[in-house]
Nucleic acid binder design. Structure first.
Length: 153
DNA sequence: GCCAACGTTGGC
DNA sequence: GCCAACGTTGGC
C-alpha cells in the first residue's frame, strides 16, 4: 500500500465538496500532465491513501485523508466539450488521460498548513516543498505520512 | 532534435 | 497581481 499527496484548489474542489458527495466518493479528474497521468494509470491502486492538499489558497496545506477506491480508468471529461479539461486529442477509443476514484477517510481536526510542514524537520524532503515542483500528485513516504497524520490530530 | 515563445502552477 | 520554475508547442 502506497501513500500520496493529491493537490486541489479548494475554489475548484475542496475537501468539503468531497464530504458533500454521495458516499463521500468522487472521481479525481482533470489531471493533464503526463507524469501524473502515468501515476494514475499505473501506480495508484485501490487501498492506497492520500493527503487531500489545498493549493492556491490561504493558507495552503493538508486538509485531510482520502482512500483510493477505484483504480485508474479513462478521464471522460477529456472528451466532454463542456468541460474545462476538454482535450480533442483524447477519445473513448484512445484515451489520453486517466483518473481514479477517492473516498473521504477524514477531514483533519487540525488543518496542517504548508508553513507547519516547512517547519517540521522530518518533512524537509517532501516534494511539495521543492521549488518549482509542478506535479499535482506526489508520492509520500511512510514516515511523512505518520508525521503529518499526527500533526492533523 | 533544438530552442524560443508561450502557458500553467502555485506560493507569496 | 507578481513572478519563478517548469511543461508544452511548433518552426526550423
Amino acid at each position: 500500500m502506497n501513500y500520496w499527496l493529491f493537490k486541489s484548489e479548494p475554489s475548484c474542489f475542496s475537501i468539503d465538496d468531497l464530504r458533500a458527495r454521495n458516499k463521500q466518493i468522487s472521481c479525481w479528474d482533470g489531471v493533464r500532465n503526463y507524469q501524473v497521468r502515468n501515476m494514475l494509470r499505473d501506480e495508484i491502486k485501490i487501498g492506497d491513501k492520500a493527503f487531500f492538499y489545498h493549493s492556491s489558497c490561504t493558507p495552503p496545506g493538508v486538509a485531510g485523508i482520502v482512500e483510493v477506491v477505484k483504480n485508474g480508468y479513462p478521464d471522460h471529461t477529456a472528451w466532454d466539450l463542456q468541460s474545462d479539461h476538454f482535450d480533442p486529442g483524447s477519445t473513448p477509443e484512445n484515451p489520453r488521460w486517466y483518473m481514479v476514484d477517492v473516498k473521504l477517510v477524514k477531514k483533519f481536526p487540525h488543518f496542517v498548513s504548508l508553513d507547519e510542514i516547512r517547519r517540521q524537520s522530518h518533512l524537509k524532503k517532501m516534494l511539495i516543498l521543492r521549488k518549482g515542483n509542478r506535479l499535482s500528485i506526489t508520492p509520500v513516504t511512510k514516515e511523512e505520512w505518520q508525521v503529518i497524520t499526527e500533526m492533523g490530530k
